[in-house]
Amino acid sequence: MTLSFLIYKVILVLVIFAITLLVATYSTYAERKIAAFLQDRIGPDRAGPFGILQPLADAVKMFMKEEMIPSVSNRMLFIIGPGVCMLTACMTGVVIPWGPSMNIGGTEYPLQITDLNIGILYLFGVISLGVYGIMIGGWASNNKFSLLGAIRASSQMISYEVAMGLSIIALVMTTGTLSLGQIAADQPGAHWNVFIQPLGFLIFIICAFAETNRAPFDLPECETELVGGYHTEYSSMKLGFFLFAEYINMFISSAVISTFYFGGYNMPFIARFVHDPNWLAVLGFVFLFTKISFFIFVFMWVRWTLPRFRYDQLMNLGWKVLIPLSILNLVVTGGWMMRMEIYHFFIK
């Protein structure tokens, strides 16, 4: 590992971190604009042209607000809660391949921070830790609404992680690798995994909605029943961190869905027109971000279209619909992969 390689990695980490924060910031703007569009309103249009500076105004407002820590709460854990939320949200971007490798002066520069050979498990581990921020914050607030929100969040996340894991196992069976770089590289042109695993994709995207606490699964912060859910007692930028972590999670989920099922940085027919690896890398990055933007739009579209589930409906969907469906998907995938063996077994 040479020094230049190390410097390259540090720059890549910083760039991806900056892009993650930028995309999450402008997702808040996009959410307001899309909500306005779906409700036949105009949306924010005061700050800058078309309200483009609205996220900056929001950030300034968040930082400038008075900070309140309830006197009876557990001060230390109250502060750690939103920090853990933000940390786990930012950690997942590490294993996502943002484009094919660049080749400058005969040296390969991968557009992926690290290609772990257990990339999917790493991702899954970090997602499963995401619930701690909400639970710690909700409990330390010493407020019954916060505690109820935290408990809803944790039980919802644990329930949907099972179905999510089972749908990923079917994907791993067909791709034969746990590395995200390899999964993206194995889907050249239009050989996207969504055509091989349509049911798996459907289960995965539903679980992704539940894991990010987005509507129609936003019961942990359901205003009509729980005031603000787990962040009722939070104010100022601590509240901002909780809300911002949700947008980062949405961005990362969209990136993961694009990489797993929609070819990542691959695009049909592009290999016919572009041959230079550097241009391919740049175009791959653009394609990936187009796909990510589309999925972020889907997240918002669903939020402003569908009403919220009732809690028992949520649990029924998770345990009695999604888990049996994902097990069925697993069995069918395995049966299809072993079709020649099964055929020979019954012929002979």
């Binding site: 581990g125 997602i127 499963s128 639970m135 944790s154």
Partner: peptide, 9 residues
């Protein structure tokens, strides 16, 4: 990610 969350719960 799973068992300790249940404990905490």
């Amino acid at each position: 990610g799973a068992i300790m969350v249940l404990f905490l719960f």
